[in-house]
Simulated scan of single mutants.
Amino acid sequence: MTGFPSDGKWRGYAGGMDKDSTSRFLNAFASLERHLRKTYGSGKGHDDIPMLLARAQGSGAMRGYAEDLRAFTQLRNVLVHERIENRFLLTTDEAVTRHLEHIVQHLTRPPEIGFFQGEVTTTTAEAHIGEALTVMSSLDLSQLPVYRNGVFISVLTSDTIARWLGANVKDELADLTVPVSEVLKYQESVEKHAFIARNASVFEVLDAFERYTRQGERLSALLITQRGRETEKLLGIITVYDLPRALQAVGQ
């Protein structure tokens, strides 16, 4: 057969007369098709698998899976349509079936972001920037959520601090008693933050960072709360530096 990648992820696409493996492959593909129609279907019932995969292409859930799923679609078509007396002309290798089952499991039951949750260090708008710098340096933080009277107002980032320093250093000195709220005025318009619910999936995290990038903006931090509302207690924070962990969680 042609058109299938041979990058070493699995050994071939067919072989070993394993009817059970082939049945599991078709069952897994049926689950995949139901998920794609539910998530990306138009609701009109005319969407074929290539069309659904094309719609899903830009989502974080499909990162690293699109090429494999296109190949599996070809294989599924051969298995279903090329039969003699209702017997398969081809059977799938166990490794192929396991790989598809792995993908379907991640797509239909994606890992949640619980492993990003934990105590979050914050500062106040009234705090001196020198105090905030000390905290960020000692804890190796690049982002620091800022509150005023217990209400969230923004995220202080190392990039914003660098711009403030560049504009205010005189004779190699800077006034570190300036309040954090003044430094926040140097935040770029493309620098954004967003909130996400604690039960969100890792794919939603990947989608969020990609969505802001497509819009020409930079997502500095995803702030985790119970329901994804800024009025709720912070339960965790995700930055661009955490994306390798997110990718690892979904096996990519």
Score class of each variant (00 low, 15 high):
residue 38 K to D: 15
residue 54 A to R: 07
residue 108 T to S: 09
residue 36 L to F: 00
residue 82 E to K: 11
residue 74 Q to Y: 15
residue 111 P to Y: 03
residue 92 T to E: 09
residue 62 M to Q: 01
residue 11 R to Y: 13
residue 97 T to S: 03
residue 58 G to A: 07
residue 18 D to V: 02
residue 55 R to D: 13
residue 63 R to W: 03
residue 26 L to M: 06
residue 68 D to R: 03
residue 23 S to V: 06
residue 112 E to V: 13
residue 63 R to D: 08
residue 72 F to E: 11
residue 51 M to C: 09
residue 11 R to P: 06
residue 117 Q to W: 02
residue 88 F to D: 10
residue 61 A to V: 02
residue 81 H to P: 10
residue 22 T to N: 02
residue 52 L to A: 07
residue 15 G to M: 08
residue 59 S to I: 02
residue 71 A to G: 15
residue 90 L to F: 01
residue 98 R to L: 09
residue 8 G to N: 14
residue 20 D to M: 07
residue 39 T to R: 01
residue 66 A to E: 11
residue 78 V to S: 15
residue 117 Q to I: 05
residue 69 L to E: 00
residue 64 G to Q: 01
residue 12 G to Q: 14
residue 107 L to R: 00
residue 61 A to T: 04
residue 76 R to H: 03
residue 66 A to P: 05
residue 44 K to F: 05
residue 106 H to N: 14
residue 19 K to S: 12
residue 53 L to E: 05
residue 57 Q to F: 04
residue 56 A to V: 01
residue 61 A to P: 08
residue 99 H to M: 14
residue 28 A to C: 12
residue 43 G to I: 03
residue 60 G to C: 00
residue 99 H to Q: 14
residue 80 V to D: 13
residue 49 I to R: 09
residue 19 K to W: 08
residue 28 A to I: 04
residue 58 G to I: 02
residue 20 D to G: 05
residue 77 N to Y: 00
residue 108 T to W: 08
residue 57 Q to A: 12
residue 84 I to W: 09
residue 59 S to T: 05
residue 95 A to I: 13
residue 111 P to G: 04
residue 44 K to Y: 11
residue 80 V to C: 15
residue 25 F to M: 11
residue 68 D to N: 09
residue 61 A to Y: 04
residue 56 A to N: 02
residue 83 R to F: 02
residue 80 V to T: 15
residue 44 K to G: 10
residue 96 V to I: 03
residue 101 E to K: 07
residue 16 G to T: 12
residue 50 P to S: 02
residue 10 W to S: 15
residue 57 Q to P: 00
residue 90 L to V: 03
residue 85 E to C: 15
residue 88 F to I: 11
residue 60 G to D: 04
residue 37 R to I: 08
residue 8 G to R: 15
residue 103 I to F: 01
residue 116 F to Y: 05
residue 105 Q to L: 10
residue 55 R to Y: 00
residue 95 A to Q: 14
residue 17 M to P: 14
residue 21 S to L: 06
residue 111 P to S: 04
residue 49 I to Q: 08
residue 62 M to E: 06
residue 8 G to Y: 10
residue 53 L to G: 01
residue 39 T to A: 05
residue 44 K to V: 09
residue 8 G to P: 05
residue 71 A to R: 07
residue 70 R to A: 11
residue 33 E to K: 06
residue 33 E to D: 14
residue 96 V to L: 06
residue 109 R to V: 12
residue 63 R to K: 07
residue 50 P to L: 00
residue 12 G to K: 05
residue 91 T to H: 06
residue 38 K to V: 12
residue 24 R to H: 02
residue 88 F to Y: 13
residue 32 L to K: 02
residue 57 Q to Y: 04
residue 88 F to Q: 12
residue 75 L to E: 12
residue 86 N to R: 10
residue 104 V to T: 05
residue 47 D to K: 09
residue 14 A to C: 11
residue 24 R to I: 00
residue 81 H to R: 07
